[in-house]
């Protein structure tokens, strides 16, 4: 099983400098925050989907389709109950749903999934190491960047070990499918303790391997993948910045794309 999200293609997005991708992703996050009207957000979502298609990362979207769908549905179903609109559709006691709150829920659903989608496109096109390098070039100290990327790297390892541990305990008769929440919590211990011990052991070995391979957080080091900002990187960043300013003008200057004016 492929445990990383990175997809080894050679698309223009892959070839961009990691810093460009990181800043662009942040700008896109910002763009999502500009509006709370579903139509406007849908346009942004469509744009991000285009990027996903262009960078060949749709297979990752397919892998995570349930999570994406779940996020969308949750927002769509829950948000309407927490905001008050004017055009009431339905009310029961303290609960009510209005046209505005429904639209807001839809917008929030789109916003949340688009957030995840942006992250997904970023991770599908950027190597762990490239991201680390990008962060370092942006002034993050090497030990911090390295710790971050190592933490990311270890997640799939622990997920794999967790699966084995569950199998081992199920083989001993542990029944994970029944019981109320308290019983289920009790069943958590036989899974958590071995995983915890495994994690300690694993990180210890990793630390030994790192030191044995000359890792010294304080020392000067070189990078084999040396990211360099090219003309197209600046072009991409420039375009995104212009886009962002434009969107902010639409929202603040022209008050467009808004269901609830006071809200993000």
């Amino acid at each position: 099983m492929n445990i990383f999200l990175y997809l080894d293609h050679n698309t223009p997005l892959h070839r961009l400098d990691p810093r460009t991708k990181l800043v662009s992703a942040l700008i896109l996050f910002g763009c999502c925050l500009c509006f709370n009207h579903p139509l406007f957000l849908a346009v942004i979502s469509l744009g991000v989907s285009g990027l996903a298609f262009w960078s060949g990362s749709l297979s990752n979207f397919w892998r995570l389709r349930f999570i994406l769908l779940l996020l969308f549905l949750f927002s769509l179903l829950l948000w309407p109950f927490f905001v008050q609109g004017k055009t009431f559709w339905w009310a029961w006691g303290p609960f009510s749903v209005s046209r505005e709150s429904f639209l807001y829920g839809l917008a929030m659903g789109l916003r949340l999934t688009t957030f995840v989608a942006i992250g997904l496109v970023f991770l599908s096109t950027t190597r762990n190491e490239e991201m680390t390098n990008g962060l370092i070039q942006m002034g993050i100290p090497y030990p911090v960047a390295f710790a971050l990327s190592t933490a990311l790297r270890l997640v799939p390892t622990f997920v794999g070990a967790g699966a084995t541990i569950i199998q081992a305990q199920v083989s001993r008769g542990l029944d994970l499918e029944s019981g109320n929440i308290f019983k289920r919590l009790g069943k958590f211990i036989p899974q958590a303790v071995p995983l915890f011990i495994y994690a300690i052991h694993q990180t210890n070995t990793l630390a030994m391997a790192l030191e044995s391979r000359g890792f010294d957080p304080g020392a000067r080091r070189t990078f084999y993948y040396e990211p360099a900002m090219k003309k197209k990187d600046w072009l991409v960043l420039g375009s995104f910045a212009v886009l962002f300013c434009g969107l902010i003008y639409l929202r603040l200057g022209m008050a467009l794309g808004v269901v609830f004016p006071g809200r993000l």
């Binding site: 070990a161 084995t164 541990i165 199998q167 081992a168 305990q169 083989s171 001993r172 211990i189 036989p190 899974q191 958590a192 303790v193 071995p194 011990i197 495994y198 052991h201």
Partner: peptide, 12 residues
């Protein structure tokens, strides 16, 4: 009964 390769995967 199934004994896994690594005993540490089940001891808690």
């Amino acid at each position: 009964g199934y004994v896994f390769q690594n005993p540490d995967h089940q001891i808690f």
